[in-house]
Write a protein that binds this DNA or RNA. Structure first.
Lengths: 204, 204
DNA sequence: CGTAAAATATAACGCCGTTACAGCTTCTCC
DNA sequence: GGAGAAGCTGTAACGGCGTTATATTTTACG
C-alpha cells in the first residue's frame, strides 16, 4: 500500500485549477472535461481516477470555493456591536459574490440537485447564524432566530445573485438599502423600547 | 408561397409542451433535444426548422413562461393603497416562483448569458416599476424610484429563488418578514412625517 | 393536375462524458 | 537490491448529444 506520491498532488492541483479557471470563464454548462484535461496537461482517465466523475470534480472545486469564502468571512473584523457586525457580514458576503460571480452562481446551482450537504457551505451559513445569535443573546433580535436567519440570508442572497448575474452593479445603493431595511426590521435598538407592532399583512 | 398549414402549429405546440415538461422535470442542464423529439413524436430537424437551435427552443418556452407570469400578475387585484399593492405584488411574485420553481430558476439562468432582452421579462419588471411609481406619485417613496425598484426586486428575488431552490419552505415567515422590512424601509406612512434619518452605515 | 415552397425524415459529423484495458511509477517488504 | 503489489496515467473505444447537408414528403394554390 504505497503512500500517495508527491507528484499526485501536483496533478490534482493542476486539474482543480484548470477546472476553476474554465468554470469562471465559461460557466458550469459549457465546462468540458476534455478541455480541463487539455489545459491541465493530463488525460481523461486521470480526472476520473481522482474525482470520480464530472460532478465530483465540480463539487471539489465548489468545496474549495466555499472554504475560501468562509476564510474570507472569518478574516473580517467583527465589531463588538452585533448590529454593526450584521452589516459587516452582509457586506462581506456580497463582496465575495462580486469578486467571484461565477463561483457564487455555481455554488447555488450545485446545491440544488445535491442531496448530501457540502460541509463548507453549512459552515458558511453557520457564520451567519453566529452573528445573529450574538444579537439575540443581547436581546436585540425581534423575530425568532431561525426566521431572522432565513430572512437575512434571503435578502443577502437576492442582492448578491442579482449582482453576480450582472443585473445590478456592485456599488448599487440597493444593497445598502435592503441591508438596512432588513437589519432595522429584525432588530430593535439597544436598550430601546419594544418595536411597535406592524399593521398585520397576511398573505391572501 | 403556401400559408403555414394548420398541422404546423400543432407540431410547434407539441414540441413546446414536451420541452416545458422536460424542463420542469429534469432542469435545463439535462434537457435533451432528442428526448423532446421522442416525447413530441417528431425528429430533430423539425425542431431545428421551427426554433433554430436548442437555445432558441428554450428561449421560446421561457418567453411563454414569462408571458404567463405577467398574465398571472395582471390578474391580481390591485388595492388602491400603493403600499398594500406592493405587498400584493410581492406575494404574487413569490407565489409564481413557488408554483413553477424550475421555470423560475431557468428564467434567471437564461437571462444571464443572453444579450438580447426577453420582452415578456422586461414587461414583468415593468409591472413592479408601475406599482412603485404609484407609491412615488403619492409621495410615499423614500429613495429614488430606481433604487427602490432594485431593492424591492432584489429582496423578492432572494426569497423566491431560495424557495424555488428548496432551501426555504413556501410558507416560511421569512418571506413576509423581508417583505415588510423592505416596504417599511422604502416607504413612509401616508401623510406621516419624514422618516428620521438612519444612522449612517457606509460600506468599508 | 402540376408545381413551388414549406414541413419532415434519413443519415452523418464532431464533440461530449464515461470506461475497459494496458503500461508505467512508486512504494513496501524481504 | 529485487520482486511484487498498488496506485497512477495513457490508449482506444462506446453510446449519446447538438447540429446539419441532403433527400423526401406534404401542403397550398394556379
Amino acid at each position: 500500500m504505497p503512500a500517495p506520491s508527491h507528484a499526485t498532488e501536483a496533478t490534482r492541483r493542476a486539474i482543480l485549477d484548470a477546472t476553476a479557471e474554465l468554470l469562471a470563464e465559461a460557466g458550469a454548462e459549457r465546462l468540458s472535461i476534455r478541455e480541463v484535461c487539455a489545459r491541465a496537461g493530463v488525460t481523461a482517465p486521470t480526472v476520473y481516477h481522482h474525482f470520480g466523475d464530472k460532478d465530483g470534480l465540480v463539487l471539489k472545486v465548489l468545496e474549495d470555493s466555499f472554504t475560501a469564502f468562509v476564510q474570507t468571512v472569518d478574516a473580517l473584523d467583527k465589531p463588538r456591536d452585533p448590529i454593526e457586525a450584521l452589516a459587516r457580514a452582509w457586506d462581506g458576503y456580497v463582496a465575495y459574490g462580486v469578486a467571484h460571480p461565477m463561483h457564487y452562481r455555481i455554488m447555488f446551482l450545485l446545491r440544488l440537485a445535491r442531496a448530501t450537504p457540502i460541509p463548507a457551505a453549512t459552515a458558511a451559513f453557520q457564520r451567519l447564524v453566529d452573528v445573529l445569535s450574538a444579537a439575540e443573546a443581547e436581546g436585540l433580535l425581534v423575530p425568532p432566530l431561525e426566521d431572522a436567519c432565513k430572512a437575512f440570508w434571503s435578502a443577502m442572497h437576492g442582492v448578491t445573485s442579482l449582482i453576480a448575474a450582472g443585473h445590478l452593479t456592485p456599488d448599487t445603493p440597493a444593497s445598502a438599502l435592503v441591508r438596512d431595511a432588513v437589519i432595522a426590521h429584525i432588530t430593535r435598538p439597544r436598550g430601546g423600547a419594544r418595536r411597535p407592532a406592524k399593521k398585520k399583512r397576511s398573505k391572501p
